Simulated scan of single mutants.
Amino acid sequence: MPSLIKVDGKAPKTGRLRILSHVVVGYMLLAFLWWAILLLKKNDEAFAAKQTLLDTQTIEQVDLAQQELIKDHNRQKTMIIGEGLVFVIALFFGIWFINRGYTKEIEIIRQKKNFLLAITHELKSPLASIRLIFETFRRQNLETLDQQHLTSHGMKETERLSNLVKNLLLSARLEKSYAPVLEKHDIRTSIERVVGELRKSYPNVNILCETIDAPATIWMDEPGIHSMLTNLIENAIKYGQGQPIDISLYDKETHYEIRIADQGVGVPPAERSKIFEQFYRSGHEDTRQEKGTGIGLYIVAKITEMHGGRIRVVENKPKGSIFVATLPKAE
């Protein structure tokens, strides 16, 4: 069955449908203009006919009737023009509203298309690697060192696949059924644990971490915060172009501030409010170089929000981005 969605994210024939809608709107405007002209013309004809009738009356009657006739004529004219303006404004407002909804739907279709392409690749890649490892074990008698190398690689691919599935399930739960269990914990412990795990997973990336000396206690759902920190730091690693990642914790008056800074490509200002949307990724999946599914930062934003905090991204100088997460202190 042919796909109903084109590669660029637009449904078939949308261009022709949009042209047809513009033609219909143009026809409606022209029909209304013609209707308004006819009404004004009929109003003028009625005014002229009434003036002809006044010529048969006395001068005193004519003066009073003439004034009333002019008022009635102007009132009718004003009513026709006023109703016309209301109709035109309502029409343009309706067109704007429909076009905004149309554009939003097209963007959602594009994001879902990109997500399907991304998730297909993200699932296919580790499965292909694991299959190749098993086939190598089956067909060859490997030395112990080679076996250890392949086993280590297979474990990494399995962990990658497991993390992907966890993120998919967590993303689905965050929309409906996720209920955080909040307990008092030291956020420094969570940061140090996640940094330690990622240093093992990415030994070639220099991950720098600086926290505060005093306990940083917050009300938090430990698994949720662990997922939030992991996705946030992995995002910095992914787009950091191999440069060092700086992680800092600051003690503010009412909250703690976590900053994750990279020296990568950065986030364009126009996209800084969009990157936390579900499935959103810049560009198109067929030409994008970086891996991902578009749900990592969505998870970050939702979990941060559930903890009463907020997340934002600012420019890092001379290049890169700084993701700033704030979490309220435990009272």
Rank of each mutant, 00 (worst) to 15 (best):
D44Q: 04
Q148W: 14
I303E: 09
S21G: 07
E290N: 10
F137L: 03
K156F: 08
Y280A: 08
L232P: 01
I80V: 14
L132P: 00
K176T: 09
L39T: 03
R193G: 01
L127E: 07
H307E: 05
H121L: 15
E107T: 13
I212D: 01
A118F: 09
A118G: 12
Q61L: 13
E305M: 07
I187T: 00
T120S: 15
F279P: 02
S248R: 12
N114C: 11
T78A: 14
I109V: 13
H255R: 02
A90S: 14
K166M: 07
V165A: 14
I258D: 00
G26H: 06
Q147F: 08
A11P: 05
K184P: 09
V86S: 11
P268S: 10
N206F: 04
G15C: 06
G266H: 00
E222N: 11
I258M: 01
S248E: 08
K113M: 06
G292L: 08
N235I: 00
S3C: 03
K156M: 11
E105Y: 10
R173E: 11
L4K: 09
I70H: 06
E210M: 05
L150V: 03
L174D: 03
V7R: 12
L39Q: 09
Q57G: 10
P328M: 00
A90I: 11
I299F: 00
D286G: 11
I133S: 02
P2F: 06
H22G: 11
L164W: 11
E257R: 10
I322Y: 01
E197P: 01
E157M: 15
L249N: 00
T103K: 12
D186M: 01
D44C: 00
C209D: 04
L91K: 05
F137N: 01
H185E: 06
I133V: 14
P12F: 02
N43I: 04
Y239H: 15
V181P: 02
Q148A: 15
W96H: 05
